[in-house]
Simulated assay, not measured.
Amino acid sequence: MQPPINKLLIDLQEQLNFINIEIDDPIVACEQAIEITLKSLEQLKKFVLKRKFKSTNEEINFFKEIKPQFSSKFIYYNKIYKMETKRPYGGQRVVKKFYRNELRKLKLFFDSELEFYRYFRTGSNYLDHKYFVRGKLDVKLSLNSFYFESDKNFATTHSYKVAKIIAHDLLQVYLEDKLLLLENKQPNQKSQVNPKIKQNWTGSKVALIELLYALHSEGVFNNGASDLKDIAAYFEDTFNINLGQYHRAFLEIRMRKGDRTKFMTSLKESLKKRMDNSDE
C-alpha cells in the first residue's frame, strides 16, 4: 500500500474509533462516520486518478484489498443509520424481532452471493483479472447494478461486492451485540459492589476495552473462568462508565494498521518511566 493511502486509512480508522467509542447515540455517530468516510473516499479517488498503476497486479490489489477497506465503512455506517432510524419503539420483544429480521436479511445476501463469497473467502485469484481490473465488463459474472452507476475509472465489477462482504461481517457483529445486550438487560438489578470511594474512568472507552480484553485473555479473574460480559459489567459498575458495543470496538481495535495494543504499550512505557524515576 502506498504511504499516502496507508496514512489516509489509519487516519480514517482513528477518527471512526473515536466516534464509535465516545458517541453513544448510534444515529449521531453514523452521521459523523458517513461524512468522514465519504471525505476519505474522495481523497482516495483523487490520489488514484492522478497516477497510473504500475502493473495489472497493482490494480487488482487496489480494487480487491485496499479500496474495499474504505468503501466497506461507508456501507456499514449507512446501513446502521438506516436500521436505527427505522427501528421500532416498543418493548424488548419488538426490538429483538426487528434485529433478528435484519440478521436474516444478511443471510439472504450471503446466500445470493454464495459463489463469489466462497471465491473471496478462500483467497482464490483465478478470476481476479476479470473481477478487479477496470473495464473488464462481463455480464455473465453476476454484476451488481451499483457498478453501472459508478465512476468506471474508480470501480471494477466486483470491488463493491468485496466491500459489501466486509461491511456485512461487521453488521453481523453489530446485530448480534445488540441482541446480546437485550437478552442480558436487567434494568432493576443492582450491583453488589459498593466501594467506599467511587473511581470514575476518565480515559477513553477504547483504552478500557483494550484493557478488558487483555485481562480476560490472561485469565486473571476467577482462574480464567469469568465470562467476558461479566467482567465488562463489573468494569462498567466499578468505573461508572458505559462500554456500549465493546465487541464491535474490539473488532475495530483488531483492524488497527499501526500498534494494535496502543494502550498496553502506553501502560508499559508509563510504568517503566515511573520505575526509572524511582530508581533515581
Rank of each mutant, 00 (worst) to 15 (best):
Ile5Asp: 02
Thr85Phe: 08
Met255Asp: 14
Glu236Val: 13
Phe146Trp: 13
Phe221Tyr: 14
Ile241Leu: 05
Leu271Pro: 01
Arg87Val: 05
Asn6Ala: 07
Pro26His: 01
Gln172Arg: 11
Phe70Thr: 05
Leu108Ser: 13
Lys105Asn: 14
Lys161Cys: 07
Gln172Val: 03
Tyr246Thr: 06
Phe148Lys: 05
Phe239Trp: 03
Ile66Thr: 11
Asn184Thr: 10
Thr85Ala: 05
Leu38Ser: 04
Tyr213Gly: 01
Asn194Pro: 00
Val28Thr: 12
Lys257Cys: 00
Phe53Met: 02
Asn242Lys: 13
Gly135Trp: 06
Leu127Lys: 10
Glu113Ser: 08
Glu59Ile: 05
Met255Ala: 13
Gln69Phe: 04
Arg274Phe: 09
Glu14Pro: 01
Thr238Gly: 00
Asn61Phe: 09
Lys185Cys: 09
Cys30Phe: 02
Gly135Leu: 07
Lys107Gln: 15
Asp169Asn: 12
Asp276Cys: 04
Gly123Tyr: 05
Leu243Asp: 00
Asn144His: 14
Gly244Phe: 04
Lys96Arg: 13
Phe120Ile: 08
Pro88Asn: 01
Glu115Arg: 11
Phe74Lys: 07
Asp138Gln: 09
Lys96Cys: 14
Leu38Lys: 14
Lys96Tyr: 07
Tyr126Lys: 09
Gln15Leu: 03
Thr202Phe: 07
Asn240Trp: 01
Cys30Asn: 05
Asn240Thr: 11
Gly90Glu: 06
Ile21Ala: 12
Val139His: 12
Glu236Ala: 10
Leu137Glu: 14
Cys30Ala: 10
Glu22Gly: 08
Leu108Lys: 15
Met275His: 08
Leu41Ile: 15
Glu280Ser: 11
Tyr160Arg: 02
Ile241Cys: 02
Gln245Gly: 00
Gln199His: 08
Phe62Ser: 03
Tyr119Asn: 03
Ile23Phe: 04
Ser204Ile: 02
Ile231Pro: 03
Asp279Ile: 15
Lys262Cys: 04
Ser55Val: 08
Ala155Thr: 15
Arg256Lys: 15
Glu84Arg: 03
His216Asn: 11
Asp128Phe: 01
Asn188Gly: 13
Asn188Arg: 05
Lys272Ser: 10
Tyr77Arg: 00
Thr37Ile: 07
His247Ser: 07
Lys73Leu: 11
Met275Val: 08
Glu113Lys: 12
Lys86Phe: 06
Leu12Thr: 01
Gln245His: 12
Gln199Ile: 14
